[in-house]
Design a protein around this nucleic acid. Structure first.
Length: 289
DNA sequence: CTCCAGGGAGCCT
DNA sequence: AGGCTCCATGGA
């Protein structure tokens, strides 16, 4: 067990850990009940490494099974200059309201394979249930890693490919069960080159990801934004489509691709950041008042 | 009871 | 290419 603290002065601007980790970007973190006078611990995995972080007065305290300092910085977006990012938001009421209310919300860069399967599960699901299903996949097919308590990894594709559709439906995946199985099999058998995605431009990368079963343009955008560190994607979910209707009606088009192009051109130099602020703002009740 | 959730696949023109 | 329908499940 290793431990340490990343001093707050090494973040580029504020961090609200709980807001960031519960905002629907990732479903791999679990809040640990019970703590002392500091903030709660949030526990997750990174490959085979188990990691826990919490906010303390000096900055971000961590405990882990291996030194994760560099990964924490990347994963929690601590190197993003948040004040500059927010300053560059366009002067639209909904964006200004979101950034005022959501101080310290950062864009994550989560492990890509768990992100992929998480968002395959996300179709027509509420955030709380997505988290429950991801947890169920980890507890059923992940590998238990020793920590204070045992913490399950997220299963690799080869392990998911060994599951049966009946098992996955029993966990509550519903019609998404075959999507998970088929995509896991494609990855396991090398029918999809994940690494090549990183070399492609944004729209080509999105198109390529939709070759996976259960991955349409919206899920592909989430994988690119939250798992591959792209700044362009604006996942067009129900909340963002509502925001487009109400605040950017001229961006509404017939196709996903064209609506995406139009809204990205309206959200400033970091469209994905703006999207996540609007999404969280509206989803948590910031739209009507 | 109905409605909806961070959509996508399959099928039709 | 673009439009329509169906798809499991649980909570409000």
């Amino acid at each position: 067990m290793e431990r340490g603290i990343i001093p707050e002065e090494r973040f580029a601007g504020p961090l609200d850990l709980e807001l960031t980790l519960t905002s629907g970007q990732s479903f791999l973190w679990r809040r640990q009940p019970g703590d002392d006078g500091n903030g709660p611990w949030f526990r997750t995995v990174d490959g085979e490494t188990v990691l826990a972080v919490r906010e303390v007065e000096e900055g971000l305290e961590w405990r882990a099974t291996a030194d994760p300092t560099d990964r924490i910085r990347t994963r929690l977006g601590l190197d993003d200059d948040l004040p500059s990012v927010l300053e560059a938001f366009p002067d639209e009421p909904v964006l200004q309201a979101a950034k005022t209310r959501l101080e310290g919300l950062r864009l994550l860069e989560e492990p890509v394979v768990p992100t992929l399967f998480s968002f395959i599960l996300s179709a027509q699901m509420r955030i709380g249930r997505i988290h429950d299903l991801v947890t169920a996949l980890r507890e059923t097919y992940g590998r238990p890693r020793p920590f204070e308590e045992t913490v399950p990894t997220f299963p690799d594709p080869d392990r998911l490919a060994e599951a049966t559709e009946a098992e996955l439906r029993e966990l509550g995946l519903g019609y998404r069960a075959p999507y998970v199985l088929e995509t896991a099999t494609m990855l396991d058998e090398g029918d999809f080159e994940f690494d090549s995605i990183r070399e492609l431009n944004y729209e080509s990368a999105r198109e390529r990801l939709t070759q996976l079963v259960g991955v349409g343009p919206k899920v592909a955008d989430c994988v690119l934004l939250f798992g591959l560190g792209r700044s362009e994607p604006v996942p067009l979910d129900t909340w963002i489509r509502t925001a487009i209707e109400e605040h950017f009606p001229e961006a509404d088009a017939d196709s996903y691709a064209e609506t995406s192009r139009r809204i990205r051109s309206r959200l400033g130099p970091r469209p994905g950041y703006a999207q996540t602020y609007v999404f969280t703002h509206l989803r948590t009740g910031g739209g009507g008042d």
